[in-house]
Design a protein around this nucleic acid. Structure first.
Length: 798
DNA sequence: GCTTAGGTTTTG
């Protein structure tokens, strides 16, 4: 049975429990009675700590009171819960909760004499087919109800409607452990997908190929009569979570297929993008743990999956290619039985004359004025067969991503000049199809801003002109706007790249590089067509050079929580005022009466100027620690143990200097007690370098890096090169950028100069840089990647 | 009622 919503109003289930279940009274819980199809309900009056039995299984004991029989001499009973159910239950249950149990086994309670409770106890476990439902006390609002075999619930308290309990524990199967004939839950990164299309049967169909760090591919075929219940995938690289997907074998390969109860969540796969699930289901579980899984998959995908499909603006199109276009629908018309016309624009102008599909004006749906105004920027896309059916249902004004459009050049004939045609052929090979993007999609947001800038200019001076004049004016105005779009703001800055070494290398064209084996180094001259991430702050990551992993820069809020947590540890006075630091403790004047201790590290037994001094702090808040970091040379947040001061959890920065927070790798660090710092404190002139501090504290320092993907073109080919840069390329330390507005502006201006938004390919500046190729081998094949090196951006103000 | 598609470009 799929997930079902049970509303609980005024203490009663609005939708009742499964109808075959009947409530059993406490007095009827006796050996010899048949308890199948019965449930017992009580209030949790006591629970014992979760323990493990001798054989390792978890064990949890709760005591329930039957409120309807509260006046009886015996009105409580012991419930003994075994195995996974015990663990799950211990997590969510609170004293005072309403507890419903079915599928229990009844046995004589050995402790009845001592505890005065019911003569029997109930034994409950997943193996026995039991189910437990727990509802919060005192006010129920609503609850989720899962099948008896999986069990349970979560609920929202009426006050504040916050999620209190942990949701059911889903188990996710890695793709290399899938077995024929099973129904599983899984996560995967979308390697390939066909947007939902009209199948020959009764449903929409979407095909999705997933990969995960086990490096196994799984192709899933998903059907639904309801477009909304298929996963909302917009591009390869998106991350999905499938619940209850059926695994089976077809042609010797495993495949996934949806069946009853299938549910999916889809996430943007870009590192740093907000983690907001796209789903049609109103109810879904999503916890911190699952958030972490998404983050991990994003990092894995960033270095293991190349999904850069051909994304192009109309201004970039070339004859004879397949590309994906993000655009807005301006007009549409039925052409004949098997083809349908879509008139779209993306604010840029196609560099070639484009064909116009002849249709009667009265057959054309769309706003007449707009169709006229945009006629030189719009292109006609003819979509065929299965796509025609879907195209018919599209709403004018909606934002579309059309996958694998074919551009076809037609040579000049009959006085017509040569032109370029756009076709979306029938069939779904290579993911050919049409997807509707929601307004909150980041690419749509960007496009909207751009389209508005174009539209403004186009609508000026329209009145009182003949259509011929209008044509000319409009053409030139929009061209200028498209060209200048965003660039006017930055036109005073001129950026170029500087090669910092290997002056003897000659330029190699991209085609040659793409046809060569790796590893090699090249000097290239190319244009930066696009780059990712477009939100530049998302390009800053933390890198561990030891295990070579990347991670997100944690939020300040997490640090604050860790500090709050550590403030609960009372400073240990025995650790104050040693030979190498002086300590000061005080209590805050506010209501909280917090105790703060600062240890000032001495030099030659003397305190030095604050700007040369390292301090350690216990019990400070986020604000206080950050403030002190600006005043003192270094700040290390610490807490007391019985005999040492130690660094905090490595989710928090172990060191702060000025605005920069330094983190350690959780995987590679083996933190040592703070007294290890004495070796530095004893130096003649301690420099308190983060690298040195990290080393003596046994911490593997994470370095701030810029990670970006540049799509480079030179007329002979296109390749994606990664930028992995601590500070050389932008001449900005990656560690500084997140806290410095000026540096952020500088970086934005640099990128805008290297890749001016909205500009045609021809008008992009040429860049020179060095790239090196290298091989990455996964289970199935070897792939060549490219990285920018020894290149720097310089800027001149013109 | 229980298929449809099961990645790898139409041929307009």
């Amino acid at each position: 049975m799929p997930v079902q919503l049970l509303k609980i109003v005024k203490g009663k289930l609005e939708t009742p429990l499964p109808s075959h279940l009947q409530r059993e009274e406490l007095k009827h819980l006796q050996e010899g009675f048949d308890h199948t199809n019965k449930y017992f309900q009580g209030i949790v009056i006591l629970s014992y700590p979760l323990t493990k039995l001798g054989d390792g299984t978890a064990f949890f004991k709760v005591v329930l009171q039957d409120l309807d029989n509260w006046s009886s001499r015996i009105n409580s009973i012991n419930i003994l819960i075994h195995g996974k159910m015990a663990e799950d239950c211990a997590k969510v249950m609170h004293q005072g909760d309403t507890f419903i149990v079915t599928g229990f086994k009844l046995a004589k309670s050995p402790t009845a004499k001592e505890d005065g409770r019911h003569i029997c106890h109930l034994e409950v476990s997943e193996e026995a087919g039991s189910a437990i439902y727990v509802c919060g006390f005192p006010t129920f609002f609503n609850a989720l109800f899962f099948s008896p075999n999986t069990f349970f619930l979560l609920f929202f308290s009426l006050k504040g409607a916050f999620l209190r309990s942990v949701t059911p524990k889903y188990v996710y199967t890695p793709l290399n452990q899938l077995k024929d004939g099973t129904i599983v839950n899984l996560y995967g990164v979308v390697k390939f997908f066909k947007p939902p299309y009209v199948s020959k049967g009764t449903d929409y169909c979407s095909v999705v190929t997933l990969v995960d760090p086990s490096n196994i591919k799984l192709t899933c075929t998903l059907f639904s009569g309801n477009l909304d219940s298929l996963p909302k995938i917009y591009e390869a690289g998106d991350i999905v979570r499938f619940h209850r997907i059926k695994i089976r074998e077809y042609n010797g390969q495993i495949q996934g297929i949806n069946s009853g109860g299938f549910a999916s969540l889809t996430f943007d796969g870009t590192i740093g993008a907000p983690i907001v699930p796209r789903t049609s289901s109103k109810l879904y579980t999503f916890t911190d743990e699952e958030q972490k899984t998404i983050e991990e998959l994003r990092v894995w995908a960033a270095s293991n999956l190349s999904v850069s499909g051909p994304v192009a603006k109309l201004s970039d199109v070339q004859p004879m290619l397949y590309f994906n276009l993000t655009c807005q629908l301006v007009g549409k018309a039925q052409v004949d039985g098997s083809s349908f016309l879509l008139k779209v624009w993306d604010g840029t102008k196609c560099p070639y004359p484009t064909w116009k599909v002849p249709v009667e004006a009265r057959d054309l749906e769309g706003e007449e004025v707009l169709l006229h105004q945009l006629r030189n920027l719009m292109v006609d896309i003819l979509v065929y067969d299965n796509h025609a059916q879907l195209a018919k249902s599209l709403k004018i004004g909606s934002f579309l991503r059309i996958y694998s459009i074919h551009t076809k050049q037609t040579s000049a004939h009959n006085g017509d000049g040569s032109h370029i045609e756009f076709h979306l052929h029938g069939g779904t090979c290579y993911g050919r199809g049409i997807g509707v993007l929601p307004d909150n999609n980041p690419d749509v947001k960007e496009l909207k801003i751009f389209l508005e800038s174009v539209e403004l200019s186009g609508s000026q001076n329209v009145e009182g002109m003949s259509s011929l004049e209008l044509d000319d004016t409009f053409n030139s105005v929009t061209d200028i706007m498209v060209f200048n779009g965003y660039t006017s703001f930055f036109s005073c800055v001129f950026c170029f790249t500087v090669l910092t070494d290997h002056q003897d290398l000659n330029n190699t064209d991209l085609k040659t590089i793409l046809n060569s084996t790796a590893p090699q180094q090249y000097r290239i001259r190319a244009k930066l067509q696009t780059y990712k991430p477009q939100q530049l702050y998302q390009s800053v990551k933390l890198h561990c050079s030891k295990c070579n992993t990347l991670q997100e820069v944690p939020y300040g809020g997490d640090f604050d929580l860790i500090l709050q947590d550590s403030a609960l540890t009372t400073p240990n006075p025995e650790l104050h005022n040693t030979s190498w630091y002086d300590s000061v403790t005080w209590t805050t004047q506010d209501q909280k009466q917090r105790k703060i201790t600062i240890h000032f590290v001495k030099h030659d037994e003397m305190l030095r100027q604050p700007e040369d001094t390292l301090i350690m702090i216990e019990g400070g808040t986020f604000k206080e620690v950050c403030k002190l970091a600006k005043r003192f040379k270094c700040v290390i947040p610490v807490r007391s143990t019985e005999d040492n001061l130690e660094p905090l959890d490595l989710s928090a920065p172990f060191l702060l200097q000025g605005n920069v927070k330094y983190y350690g790798c959780k995987q590679c660090s083996t933190p040592k007690p703070i007294k290890s710092l004495t070796s530095i404190a004893a130096e003649d002139q301690p420099s308190w370098e983060p690298t040195e501090i990290a080393q003596v504290l046994g911490i593997e320092l994470l370095q701030y890096v810029f990670i970006m993907k540049f799509t480079l073109l030179d007329g002979t080919g296109m390749l994606n090169a990664y930028l992995f840069d601590y500070e050389n390329f932008f001449q900005i330390p990656a560690s500084e950028i997140l806290t410095n507005n000026f540096l952020q502006e500088k970086m934005q201006m640099t990128m805008n100069a290297l890749c001016p938004p909205g500009r045609k390919l021809d008008d992009l500046p040429w860049l020179e840089c060095f790239i090196k190729s290298y091989n990455i081998r996964d289970a199935t094949k070897q792939q060549v990647y490219y990285q920018i090196f020894d290149t720097t951006v310089a800027a001149d103000v013109v």
